[in-house]
């Protein structure tokens, strides 16, 4: 028995698998996933050129246009009606249904936080808008 063990060690050492490369690669994998995970949850809204929206205003029937102005963090104006931001989606749905192209022109006051502007874009998108045109330069 002892002779068998001696001959086995001298022939090629122990037969344990070297796990170091596997653990190494796995840890790199974990680090990459940790870095990439927040980015994987990023998305974006496409916005059209303001000039194109202005051109559309002259070409299309003005009554069919939908204009949203973000006035502050919690109030918006839809065409001529001022309302709380929370009511934006409910107000837009019937207008978008009647709209021939589903384009919504959005303007925003300079001092409004970007987060409130994006919240308005989100409500507009969820209301079924086909296209969002950000106006103002």
């Amino acid at each position: 028995m002892r002779r068998w063990n001696e001959s086995r060690e001298s022939a090629g050492g122990t037969s344990d698998v070297n796990l170091t490369p596997l653990i190494d690669v796995s840890l790199v994998l974990v680090v990459i996933l940790l870095l990439a995970t927040p980015l994987a949850f990023e998305s974006s809204f496409a916005v059209r050129r303001a000039e194109a929206a202005a051109r559309a205003a002259t070409d299309e029937n003005r009554t069919a246009r939908i204009e949203v102005a973000v006035l502050s963090a919690d109030s918006v104006r839809v065409n001529r009606a001022v309302m709380p931001s929370a009511d934006l989606g409910r107000a837009l749905e019937p207008l978008i249904e009647r709209s021939p192209d589903g384009v919504v022109a959005v303007s925003c006051r300079d001092s409004v936080p970007h987060g409130s502007f994006v919240a308005a874009l989100d409500a507009i998108k969820l209301s079924g808008a086909q296209d969002i045109a950000v106006t103002g330069r």
Binding site: F45, A46, G115, V118, L121, R137
Partner: peptide, 27 residues
């Protein structure tokens, strides 16, 4: 999200001046 909209709009206008044809806002 805390930036004023004016700063974001200025960046979008600069991107257009730089030749961007398609723009999007990240969320």
């Amino acid at each position: 999200s805390r930036l004023p909209h004016a700063a974001v709009r200025a960046a979008m206008n600069a991107a257009r001046d730089g030749g961007a044809l398609r723009l999007a806002v990240a969320t």
